[in-house]
Design a protein around this nucleic acid. Structure first.
Length: 481
RNA sequence: GGCGCCGUCGCCAAGUGGUAAGGCAGAGGUCUGCAAAAUCUCUAUCGGCGGUUCGAGUCCGCCCGGCGCCUCCA
């Protein structure tokens, strides 16, 4: 079954055929490390992590490159504000990035290049553009000359005239054309700099991605990803640079994820309506955030709200509870004793439908619907008394778990999840576990003496505290609402 | 002003032109001392108006409403 991916360049879903038969080159724009990541960054990371996982599941070797922009005005400003070295800002926020993304189960890319480790590659590219008259030096800055690239605007669907008439770019007298963009910026006194043929300076933003993608993935590679907001000018400029330098189209499939919105508006620094990932973790489990972010299609906007996060918490809790139930039912059954186990998993209807959904431009929303439907079947199977079909159940739950893992959930055991969820919820409630257990014990003895009024009183007290109880054949269990 | 996207049940959210997935919430049944959990059943004609078509949420036009990019931004 073929995989179809929406290509921003052609504005169509296209059958995905990599350049090399079994290998995929994928470059995704990472973050500028001057602050904590917010939920918008989380979405981008999750979307391309899911592509990465799914490609690997399909048997491809994936060369996945995700960069860190570690030199930039904002980094310098932040360093000045805090009176520290700019590299210290980098270190701090790269560490934070790994911590935040790690908890979201974002897999490590093949390469994570930093811009400042690739100054020579960038200089080489800039030199090539200058040599070809596609870039020019002006008072220590080097600009890319838009008029040298007649396809400029092909990705974003803009034409130069429209851009110029609506140009909001800062007027810069040293540019020949207001739309020309910086490849190299002369450093101001006190700023970090690198030597170059045009004097001390630092790279413009766009050139790092052109240089690093070329270095790690070649002149032309399969996928370039990032948030929709990077289409123009960042990716447009990358095309101009790479194409200008090598004469080849650098990217075969451009993939862009939609925004995370708050009250229908884009979450962004400038609007100040953002939540950092670590803030969200105080109230919601990381896997819940992940599940929330894959519950709609990656190209659609998604509205970040407490209600939606709470819904996602309920769904994931049900998943893990279902998983626990199935595992208990299956017991110690060893799947190795089941003939053709992996083939059976592969042929399972869920696996087939899941692949069909993912093949349709990574439709994780449909995949989630399938996960819910399968859970219902699993729960039903668990309740059936005879255990003749434990093998079938093992196949089904494996198919279910495997699909979940591609979506980035089920990275914990049900017990671990339950424990972590409790800790998060309880960190906001501060309940006394001993008191809860005392009430449950009191209720138990009341029930044993059939003192239902007293038993219900205990339960009411617990309910008021936010504790839900479930009487099961093996005893009373409880959790937080 | 230019380019583009979106408007599907109370809420969230899928949907290749053939008569609307899934989740949350809600109603009823099974189970339970009663609950909870689980499970079963039920709940939409797709912003509006025209058009194309045997047939449109799904294509075209117009209108209304919302959003994004055109400056750094995932």
């Amino acid at each position: 079954m073929s995989l179809f991916i929406y290509n921003t360049m052609t504005r169509k879903k296209e059958e995905f055929v990599p350049l090399k038969e079994n290998q995929i080159g994928m470059y995704v724009c990472g973050v500028t490390v001057y602050d904590y990541c917010h939920v918008g960054h989380a979405r981008a990371a999750i979307v391309f992590d899911t592509f990465y996982r799914y490609f690997q599941y399909r048997g491809y070797e994936v060369l996945f490159v995700r960069n860190f922009t570690d030199i930039d005005d904002k980094i310098i400003n932040r360093a000045n504000e805090q009176g520290v070295d700019w590299q210290e800002i980098n270190r701090k926020y790269i560490d934070a990035f790994y911590e935040d993304m790690g908890r979201l189960n974002i897999a490590a890319p093949t390469e994570e290049p930093k811009a400042t480790d690739h100054i020579p590659e960038m200089l080489e590219m800039i030199q090539s553009l200058v040599d070809q008259d596609k870039a020019y030096e002006s008072e220590g800055d080097v600009f890319y000359s838009i008029k040298s690239f007649k396809e400029y605007g092909c990705l974003s669907g803009k034409n130069n005239d429209d851009l110029q008439s609506g140009a909001r770019v800062e007027v810069n007298e040293t540019k020949r054309n207001p739309l020309d963009f910086a490849l190299w910026k002369k450093s101001k006194p006190g700023e970090p700099f690198w030597d170059s043929p045009w004097g001390p300076g630092r790279p413009g933003w766009h050139i790092e991605c052109s240089a690093m993608s070329k270095k790690y993935l070649g002149d032309t590679f399969d996928i370039h990803g990032g948030g929709k907001d990077l289409v123009f000018p960042h990716h447009e400029n990358e095309i101009a640079q790479s194409c200008g330098c090598t004469g080849k189209q650098p990217v075969r499939y451009w993939v862009h994820n939609g925004f995370v919105n708050i009250d229908k508006e884009k979450m962004s620094k400038s609007l100040g309506n953002f939540f950092t990932i670590r803030e969200v973790y105080k109230k919601y489990h990381p896997e819940v955030l992940r599940l929330f972010l894959i519950s709609s299609h990656y190209r659609s906007p998604i509205d970040f709200s407490e209600k939606n996060l709470e819904d996602a918490t309920k769904v994931l809790s049900r998943f893990y509870e279902g998983l626990a139930g199935v595992q208990e039912k299956i017991g110690s059954l060893d799947s190795a004793t089941i003939p053709d186990f992996s083939k059976k998993v592969k042929d399972h209807p869920l696996t087939q439908k899941f692949e069909a959904a993912m093949n349709d431009d990574l439709n994780t929303a449909v995949a989630m619907a399938l996960m819910n439907e399968e859970l219902r079947k699993l729960n039903t199977a668990v309740q059936i008394k005879n255990s003749d079909n434990l093998g079938k159940l093992a196949v089904a739950v494996t198919a279910w778990k495997d699909a979940g893992k591609i979506l980035g959930i089920f990275c914990l055991t049900p017990e671990e999840f339950e424990k972590e969820l409790f800790e998060i919820k309880n960190s906001n409630l501060g309940l006394d576990v001993e008191k809860i257990e005392k009430l449950i014990a009191d209720r138990k003895s009341a029930r044993q003496s059939k003192n239902w009024a007293e038993a219900d009183r205990c339960r009411d007290d617990l309910t008021e505290m936010g504790v839900l109880i479930e009487d099961t054949p093996t005893g009373t269990e409880w959790k937080l609402k």
